[in-house]
C-alpha cells in the first residue's frame, strides 16, 4: 500500500513540477491491477485539492495503438474538472503535450454497468484531448501508462448534439489553419459507442459510477500530434461542428 502511495506521489509531483521522470517499471514491480490502484491514488490526491470527478477517458481504442502496445483491450484514465479546457491551454505547465481529435459522450443517467449505457447517453460532441505523459520521452509500458492516468492532461468538447450514429464521421485536426490529421471516428474501436460500452464495463469492475453530467472521451480518431506554444488548434467532425483551443 505504501508502494502505491509513493508511486502516486511521484507521478503527482512530476505533473505539478512539470518534470519528466523515468518510468516506474524501471525500478518497481508493477502489474495492471496495482497500476490502476496508483491511478486512483493520483486522482484522490487531486480531489483532496478540491478538484471534482468529471468523467473518464478511454485509451488504446485504435487497432494501430493496440498493436503498438501489444495489448488487446482498452484502458482508461479519470478526468477531473480541472482538466477541462475552455479555450486556452497553458503548455508551459505541461512536459511534452500532444493533442488528438476525439468523440465525447455526455452521460445523462448513472452508469454502473454496460446495461445502463444505451439509455444513459445524453449527448455526443466533437472533442480534443491534450495528452502529457509524465515519463521521459513519452516512453512507457502498459502498467506505467495506466498508473499515469493514461497520459491525461486536459480535454475540451464542442457543442453537445442529440445522440446519433457517429460510427463513421470524418474528422480533421487543423493547426493554424493547416490540416495536420485526417481520419474517421471508425478508428475508435470501429464505432465510438463500443468504447462507451467498454467504459461502462471498466466502471463496473472498478466500482465507479459514471454520473449524470460526466463526460466519456471515447478515443482518438487519429494519432496525436505535438502541441506547441502559440498556436490555434481546431478539431472538426462531420455533423458535430468543431472545437477550438489556443496555446
Amino acid at each position: 500500500m505504501s508502494d502505491v502511495e509513493a508511486l502516486a506521489c511521484t507521478l503527482d509531483e512530476a505533473a505539478r513540477d512539470v518534470r519528466a521522470i523515468p518510468k516506474l517499471t524501471d525500478t518497481a514491480e508493477l502489474d495492471v491491477a496495482t497500476a490502476y490502484a496508483v491511478q486512483r491514488r493520483v486522482i484522490e490526491r487531486r480531489l483532496a485539492r478540491h478538484e471534482r470527478p468529471a468523467g473518464v477517458k478511454m485509451g488504446f481504442t485504435s487497432k494501430a495503438k493496440m498493436v503498438q502496445m501489444g495489448v488487446h483491450d482498452v484502458i482508461w484514465g479519470l478526468l477531473t474538472d480541472a482538466m477541462l479546457v475552455e479555450s486556452h491551454v497553458e503548455v508551459d505547465r505541461l512536459i511534452h503535450p500532444r493533442i488528438e481529435p476525439e468523440i465525447a459522450y455526455l452521460i445523462g443517467r448513472p452508469v454502473r454497468s454496460p446495461a445502463d449505457v444505451d439509455a444513459a447517453v445524453a449527448g455526443v460532441a466533437v472533442g480534443f484531448e491534450v495528452l502529457d505523459s509524465r515519463y521521459l520521452d513519452f516512453s512507457f509500458t502498459l502498467p506505467d501508462v495506466i498508473a499515469d492516468n493514461a497520459s491525461a492532461a486536459g480535454y475540451g468538447v464542442g457543442a453537445w448534439h442529440e445522440p446519433r450514429d457517429v460510427s463513421n464521421v470524418g474528422m480533421l485536426m487543423e493547426i493554424d489553419g493547416r490540416v495536420v490529421q485526417t481520419g474517421s471516428s471508425a478508428a475508435i474501436l470501429g464505432d465510438p459507442m463500443r468504447s462507451l460500452r467498454a467504459a461502462a464495463r471498466l466502471s463496473e469492475q472498478a466500482g465507479i459510477v459514471l454520473e449524470p453530467g460526466q463526460v466519456v472521451l471515447a478515443g482518438a480518431a487519429t494519432a496525436a500530434v505535438p502541441l506547441p506554444k502559440g498556436v490555434h488548434v481546431r478539431v472538426t467532425a462531420s455533423g458535430l461542428g468543431s472545437v477550438e483551443v489556443t496555446t
Binding site: K63, N168, V169, G170, M171, L172, V179, T182, G183, S184, S185, A186, A187, G190, A221, T236, A237, S238
Partner: peptide, 24 residues
C-alpha cells in the same frame, strides 16, 4: 455530401483495415 469531411472506413469481414476522411 460534404466531400471534405466525409469519413471513410475499409473493412475485411468486419476487421478494420483503413480509416480516413475526404480531406486526405
Amino acid at each position: 455530401v460534404d466531400l471534405r469531411l466525409c469519413g471513410m472506413v475499409l473493412e475485411r469481414r468486419g476487421e478494420q483495415l483503413s480509416t480516413g476522411a475526404g480531406a486526405a
